[in-house]
Structure formats: C-alpha cells, structure tokens
Nucleic acid binder design. Structure first.
Lengths: 209, 209
DNA sequence: AGTAAAGTTGACGGAGCGTCATTAGTCTGA
DNA sequence: TCAGACTAATGACGCTCCGTCAACTTTACT
C-alpha cells in the first residue's frame, strides 16, 4: 500500500492497547485499594476488576507494590507542574512559601476528595507518600527552588537540605491532620505552615548555625 | 514444702516460659527484619530463628505486622520516659524544645546504631514509625507538654494540634536526613530543628491566627 | 496471503499462611 | 506424692495467592 499512508496517527494498535491495559490496571488498583485497603488487596483482586487474565498483570507490573508506586509516581508527576508555576510566579520569599504550601494542601485535599466524601479512612493519603525516584526529584526541586528564591531575596537559608526536609515534614504531618478536620481546613493549615516556616527561616538566617 | 517458700519470685514456670518465648520471637524478628527486610520476611523465617514450632508463633502474635507493631511499641515505650524527664527538667520553653529534639535525635541514632554501623540500608528506621496506640499517646503527650510549658512561659501556641504535628513532622523528616550523614549529625539537626520551631512559634504567638 | 513477532490466556507447581487434633508439660488439691 | 485438670507446643493439613509458561490469538510487515 501507499507507504505515505499512516505517518503518525494510530501508529499502532499494539501501543494503543498496551497503554489502555496499563491504565485499566491502574484504575482497577485505585478502586480496590480504596475499597479494601492496600494490605488486603491481592494481584487477583486487581486483575478481576479488569477484563484481563491474571498472567497479563505481570506483563505490566511485578507486584501490587509496583502498582502502588506507579500510582504514587503519577501523583508526584501531576504535582510537579503546580510547583513549577508557584516558583515562576512567586515574587518574594514569603509568597513562594505560602503559595507552595497552598498548592500542596490543595493538591492533597483534591487527591483524597473521594476518600473524604465517603468517609472511608481506608487508604487515606494515596497522594504523595513512599520513597520513589519521583519523590526524590520533588525533594531536589524544592531544595533548588528554596535556594534560588532565597538568593533573590538575599536570605541565608542555613542548611538547605535540613530546611527542605523540615518544610516537607511540616507539610506531610500537618497535611494528615488537616484532612482529619471537617470541613477540611485548607486555609488554616496553609497559614500555620507558612508562618512557622517563614519566621523560623528568618531566625536561622539571622543566626546562621 | 514450706508454703512460705516462693511468695513472688518464679511465681510460675508457665509465666516464665511465656515471657521468654515472646521475647525470643521479638528478638528473632528484629534480627530477620534487619537481615532481609520487613517485606521479605515470613512468619516461618522468624520462628525458624527460635527453637519453637510454627504453630506456636500464633499463640503470641497474629502476624508479622503485629510483631512489628510490638517492636515499634517497645521503642515508643522506651522513649516516653525520656520525654517525661525532658518535660520535668525544662525550665523554659526554649529549653524544653531543645531538650526534646536532642532526646529524640539521640534516641533515633541509638535505635539505628546497628543499621548505621554495618551500612545496611535495610529496615532503616526501626525506631518510631507507623500508627500505633503508643504513637498516638506520644503525640498527645507532646501536645500536652507543649501546652503546659507554653502556659508557664506565657506564650500562645496558636493551634496546638497543628503545632505538635509540625514539631513531629520536622523531627521525622530531619531525623531521616540526619541519619544519612556520616558522621551522624546529631548536634546540627538539634540546633536546626530547635531554632526553626522556636522562632516559628514566637511568630505565631505574636500573630495569633 | 503468509509468516514473524508480540501479547494474552489460564492452568499449574510452589510458597507461605493459619488452624487444629494431638501430644507434652505444668499446676492443683488431697 | 500422685491423679486429674488444664495450659501450651507441635507440625501436618488444607487453602489462598503467587509467578511462570506452553499454547494460542492478534498485530505487523512484506
């Protein structure tokens, strides 16, 4: 046939189904994890929720753990652009901190919206946990952003690794508690974290350890 | 025999063996977890390390998860007295914060001493993680201590739940990074955490949200 | 159309689980 | 001291889930 025929579009049914299957497994896993919790779910539980056979699962993932990491990784991947926007639009150190926390807490709330509405304490916090390469990338990105923004504002950060760790620690733990409150206390958590970190940093800057 | 003989001591071989078996299982579990990691270990791996039979395991624990919780619970139980001492001896808010962080980081280092020395990244952080009743008790204790110490110092804490969460978040995340450094940076982590939290709190106190 | 390559299927052997009938050890009372 | 009652240890058993693989189906290419 005409060799010019299909240059790009539908460049292969193969690839299409592959992507579709992967997504089907991920979607099924989200459902099952949310319904019965991570520990209780088996690979078969996940695959049963799709129209694939058990063996097929292993063409895509090695284990349910790997599925979980993929889900977490996607969360991280969805969050990074927001972080980038925050960095680009921040015009002061304070604004950066506040916007970054606001972005994280908003994201966290959105990711757990379903779990929140049906009152299921199951699988709370599917958003952003565990140690994946993506998580490390986010750590590094935040650290770099902090250094950059601080430099612009002529602020000394002290130990930027420790500062980043602290900022993330606050976000994580505070985020957990924020999600427990009804209504979810986005505004309060953001204000609290921002003030705490910002003023703490100023003190560290003033008294460089 | 003389009925006065054994009033308290060795009040029963039954109880003795029971306690001994429980300890044997916990000790074996520590070893195996450290050697091959939590995920990879099976109940049989643990019991094989003792001279007990597989069925006996289930007289003491429901699963390896429960063993892990018991180990974590023991860590928490060992840490609480230290926390109490800190509270009792602190004569100012700042001193309390510093001593509490120092106590935690010291404890964390000690708990992971073995893992640190043999360079095994396996099962890092056996000290204090997961969600057990003991962990919640520690959260509550810290929260109460903070409130009490703050009151004595006439400092407003703002939202004490959020503050406690933040303090713990900083400790956890900073602790992780502290353990990565060689030599383990106890002093630096303590100073950093103390300054950050202390000055942050002062700011929140000044500007009660 | 014919063939190679890629992907899917589900049945199968194996690993680990938790139980339970049996056995061994400890305690109590006379 | 000993019989009988009771508590705990044992390990074989049935079961669930795992990961693999030979057979089969679908897609790609010429």
């Amino acid at each position: 046939m005409n060799s010019i025929a299909k240059p790009v579009a539908a460049s292969g049914k193969r690839a299409k189904t592959k992507a579709a299957n992967r997504q089907a497994i991920l979607a099924a896993a989200r459902q099952v994890f949310a319904r019965i919790g991570f520990d209780a779910t088996t690979v078969r539980d996940i695959i049963r929720e799709t129209d694939l056979a058990s063996g097929t699962f292993y063409n895509y993932f090695k284990s349910k753990e790997e599925v979980f990491e993929a889900i977490a990784g996607e969360s991280a991947k969805r969050f990074r652009p927001k972080l980038q926007t925050v960095r680009e639009e921040a015009s002061s150190f304070e604004e950066y901190i506040r916007a970054a926390y606001a972005a994280y807490f908003t994201f966290l709330k959105a990711e757990n919206e379903e779990a929140i509405s049906n009152g299921a304490p199951h699988m709370a916090l599917i958003g952003v946990r565990v140690d994946t390469p993506e998580m490390h990338a986010i750590f590094d990105e935040i650290r770099t952003d902090l250094e950059e923004v601080a430099k612009s504002a002529n602020i000394s950060l002290g130990d930027s690794e420790y500062l980043t760790a602290s900022a993330i620690g606050i976000a994580r733990e505070l985020g957990d508690h924020m999600l427990q409150r009804r209504p979810v206390d986005l505004e309060g958590a953001t204000r609290f974290a921002t003030t705490l970190l910002l003023e703490g940093v100023k003190a560290i800057a003033a008294r460089p350890n």
